[in-house]
Design a protein around this nucleic acid. Structure first.
Lengths: 250, 250
DNA sequence: CGAGCGTTTGATCGGTGTCAAGGATCGTGG
DNA sequence: CCACGATCCTTGACACCGATCAAACGCTCG
């Protein structure tokens, strides 16, 4: 194990340690999981609704999102994923994909057989607990999104989404919370928030005009993060990040 | 074990067997979990946002719901729970309640210490897998709710919610899908769907006028379930029920 | 330099929210 | 048994947020 390049599954270890630090043997067991690597272009599908996947997919870098399509063709994005996320535990363990997962940017992934996941989860309780914990945090984020989309107005929704994104990026070591790259189009932001792209545009421009943030290309610069969090009715508890991942959040 | 009354934890066994049938020993181990029983009046809280619960709560009968409150006082209900649901795995395993859980009707619950849950989950992989599966199904329902609230119009949202409710009731053995008791006020329906109670009222009356359903008191009678499912853009896959729990659904 | 995608802006429409008041139902106590 | 209050349902009038339609503009990458 004296390879210079990081181990392909290293991001998974990092993510699982969000909850609790793992022992050296547990870490080694995770890294020893069987897997196959693959790179995917933007827009390509990892899973399509209706598939019956038998592998779970670890996102090694880049961004991906889950979405559902409704009867009239409308699309709802249910979550955004980044480095270290097990993007498809849900579909593979449940056996039937009730939604699609798609690459947002160019991504590198590792497919891990479902059975290997099950096995390590029960052979190594600490790993199993970390995975369970992870799916519970996913659930917590889903609840917050239900609330965001159901009960907040356009500006709050967007501010909230941007706050969530910034903290998760920071926790994953991918940027500063008040200055980061947002790899999404306004249409995708709209599909996250249940709005239209036109309204997202107007709302973002309004926030820009009010000095809340600046958007150039795909990057976001927040002038006053706490102010944005206040506007977005954002409290970070639901992300269940460790204290030291949050630092000086209110 | 020759008691005539069913075991207090029997509903949990039934629920866990939604996924896969358990062995006799696994069943016995679940029933042997330490627990304390309690009855709660409508509106009473099982957990409040901000609590740090150390027990999980099994709903033995009656109905409960999770909700979050936003900055302006608005409330969003994130899920409805019924007999057999572990209503608070999420909060207790995560250690911090990011939302509240409240009794909808009069309920009977059993509190099970978090540690006992962890232990059985890893001592008995089949039980652990069933619990994990259950939290994944919860996640799947959350995603559908995000989609419902984010991308469907009022009538579809309500029709969808009523369809979900009817199938879950049927699967739990609590009613027929086209004729059941709905223990919710219109305001609570509004908080599930991100609407206002006034609009819920108008929409339900409209559906009634169009012959889709009849509501008297708290009961719902669906004249043509498949038609309602079509109106509500409802496909049952996301509930991940077994074939034999669904019977003749499209 | 042109094509394609994403952004920006304007005009108008419509679904849902808001405010307000009256009606139905049910449990409770006199 | 009736009266009363509380809660929930129903309905109307009106306001407004965000959707829709349409067109121009600006990147970015062949």
């Amino acid at each position: 194990m004296l390879a210079k390049t990081p181990h392909p599954l290293a991001p998974l270890v990092d993510k699982l340690e969000y909850a609790h630090v793992l022992s050296e043997e547990d870490r080694a067991a995770v890294l020893a999981l069987p897997h196959s690597l693959k790179a995917l272009e933007p827009h390509s599908y990892i899973v399509r609704e209706g598939d019956k996947p038998t592998s779970s997919c670890l996102l090694r870098n880049g961004f991906a999102f889950r979405h559902k399509v409704v009867g009239d063709g409308g699309r709802q994005i249910c979550s955004i994923h980044m480095k270290g996320d097990m993007v498809d535990l849900q579909n593979s363990l449940l056996g039937y994909a009730d939604h699609s997962v798609q690459a947002l940017t160019r991504i590198e992934v590792a497919f891990i057989p479902r059975e290997a996941i099950r096995q390590i989860a029960f052979d190594r309780p600490a790993v199993g607990m970390a995975m369970w914990f992870d799916t519970l945090v996913d659930g917590s984020i889903f609840r917050e999104w239900i609330t965001n989309v159901g009960r907040r107005k356009a500006r709050l929704r967007l501010a909230h989404l941007l706050c969530e994104f910034s903290l998760r990026l920071e926790a994953a070591g991918l940027g500063k919370r008040d200055d980061y790259t947002l790899p999404m189009t306004q249409e995708q932001l709209a599909d996250c928030t249940g709005l239209t792209s036109v309204h997202v545009n107007r709302t973002l421009r309004g926030m820009d005009a009010d000095g809340l943030l600046t958007r150039t290309n795909r990057s976001v610069t927040v002038s006053d993060w706490k102010k944005l969090a206040k506007v977005g009715d954002f409290r970070s508890a639901y992300l269940h990040l460790r204290e030291d991942q949050l630092e000086i959040v209110q």
